[in-house]
Design a protein around this nucleic acid. Structure first.
Lengths: 204, 204
DNA sequence: AGGGTAACAAACTTAGAGGTCTGTTTACCA
DNA sequence: TGGTAAACAGACCTCTAAGTTTGTTACCCT
């Protein structure tokens, strides 16, 4: 195996396992030994590729974390026709995945924002950046929905986007308690009802 | 000072400072020395009153944390006439407080739920209990609002309560980024618009 | 093919965590 | 007023964390 390729492969392996454990147990509560033990790697390997634990997390945020948020929440709604319906479908799909996943620990990006807030401003900026990409994308799609005649013109796209993000982050946090089985259904039901009032084609 | 009173005073001092720092920096990221240094107390004092750091947190959850959630989010809406309007007012008041507080770290209960999820099931039950009290209270008030003619009968009280909690938890997480100045306004605006569609007295 | 560098292994250092233990002070009561 | 137990002080222990250093293996190039 070419060295350059092996290098990237190792980096990716460490990052993947790192993100997995950081998501499960939190950044501060996960030790490098936890990650390296799972990979049968040594401290030497880690510090050869990364400068510090913090720089390591930032590299994860910029690659794997961003990619996950993009694939899960942004890509599925890009270029679709009916924005409101598409957004509902996308959110419901994500909630379904979380619901079926026995080991779900909430909205990964939201969890990290909560964990780093007030502790590490630098890391926070990278997390906020990802959130902003999502928000901007939502606003753009909602605006397009208005010009395309899917959404009533009186709707405030930015406010709606913020509201969607807020409610989704919150419901993902609530879903960590498995007792509340019908939470996904309740949430989607309410959101759908709310969206109905914004449909310019509706007969409300 | 009577010994019994002094005992309770010390316990309360440690708990108050403990909650304050746990909220700011997280439970796992706050050391007992951090708390005790701020109070000019010793390890001996702490372990005389509490068995462990975990038991200490549970005692805080059952007293101060529960009390805060109750005073902030439950008490203000109890016994009021118009539920939807009262809820909006209550949430807006809390968001205003958070907005004006230079040192705001999100919804305290939500933060702890995020932090302990998947790490400490026992602590989680106590946190969930507090959340349940809030939820039950919301449902009760919404139900009463239906019988009193304030809320349309087709409204699903439980689903709405979950939706309110979700969105509030989410928006509090989002508000940790101070850049988004108008987030509170946006959120309240959207929520008010949503509530309007449930008002049985409305002319929608 | 062999020297050189990239890629790792692993022992070590240092700092800080939770928790223990023993001694000292303070307050109450007979 | 002196004895006793509650309330605390603070040194200490043990473990684990991030990070360092030195030594070893694997791969590439001439």
């Amino acid at each position: 195996m070419k060295n350059q390729i092996k290098r990237l492969a190792t980096i990716n392996r460490i990052q993947s396992t790192g993100l997995e454990l950081f998501y499960q147990k939190g950044f501060y509560n996960t030790s490098l030994d936890d990650i390296l033990k799972k990979l049968s790697l040594s401290k030497g390997a880690f510090y050869y590729h990364f400068q510090s634990k913090e720089e390591f997390f930032i590299s994860i945020a910029q690659t794997l974390l961003f990619r996950k948020v993009y694939l899960d929440l942004i890509a599925p709604i890009e270029g679709k026709e009916d924005p409101l319906d598409t957004i509902i479908q996308c959110l419901d799909t994500n909630l379904e995945t979380a619901e079926n996943n026995f080991l779900d620990y909430g909205f990964i990006l939201g969890n990290f924002i909560t964990e780093f807030n007030g502790k590490n401003p630098e890391v926070m900026t990278y997390l906020q950046d990802i959130l902003t990409v999502w928000e901007v994308n939502l606003v753009t799609i909602l605006q397009k929905g208005k010009t395309d005649g899917y959404i009533s013109r009186h709707v405030d796209s930015e406010a709606l986007a913020s509201f969607i993000i807020s409610s989704y982050m919150g419901v993902r946090t609530l879903m960590v308690e498995k007792k509340n089985k019908r939470l996904r259904y309740k949430y989607i039901q309410q959101l759908r009802q709310y969206f109905k009032t914004m449909d310019s084609r509706a007969t409300v």
